Amino acid sequence: MARTLSLETFSEMLGNLYQGPLENIPWATFLNQLNLYLDSKYVTFILRPPSAQVEGLMVTTNGTSAEVVEGIASYNKYFFTLDPFVGLPNRQVVTLEEFVSKDDWLNSEFYKSFLEPGDVFHILGADINTCDGAQCRIRISRGRASPAFSSEDKALLTQFIPHLERSIKIHMQLNRIETERNLYAGAVDQLAVGTIILDETGKVLQTNQVADRLIQDKDGLKLVNDGLQVGTARDTQEFRRLVKQALLSQKSNNPSVVEALRVQRPSGRADLGIIVRSVPLSAWSEGKQCPAVVIFISDPEQQSSAPQEIVRALFDFTPAETQLAMLLANGLTLDEASEELGISRNTARAHLRSTFSKTGVTRQTMLVRLILRSVATLG
Rank of each mutant, 00 (worst) to 15 (best):
D132P: 00
Y18Q: 09
F45L: 15
R369E: 14
N24Y: 07
E98R: 12
A246Q: 01
I297K: 00
F317Y: 07
L281F: 04
V188C: 00
F317Q: 06
L370N: 10
G56K: 02
F114L: 01
E340V: 09
A134W: 05
K251M: 15
P26D: 08
V230T: 03
L327Q: 11
D299F: 04
T236C: 09
I177T: 12
F45H: 07
L57H: 13
C131R: 14
V86R: 15
R262Q: 12
G118V: 05
I215V: 11
D83F: 08
S298R: 13
G125Y: 08
G125M: 09
I72P: 02
F149D: 01
K203M: 08
R3H: 14
H171W: 11
D119H: 09
I196M: 01
D235C: 07
G186C: 04
L191H: 11
E152L: 10
T44F: 01
T61N: 07
V43P: 05
N182I: 09
L156T: 12
E23V: 08
L7Q: 14
S51K: 05
N253T: 05
T318S: 15
G20L: 01
G379L: 04
T365L: 06
Q135M: 03
Y111A: 09
T207D: 02
R363L: 07
K251C: 09
S6D: 09
A126P: 00
D316L: 11
Y18I: 13
V293H: 03
G379H: 08
E286T: 13
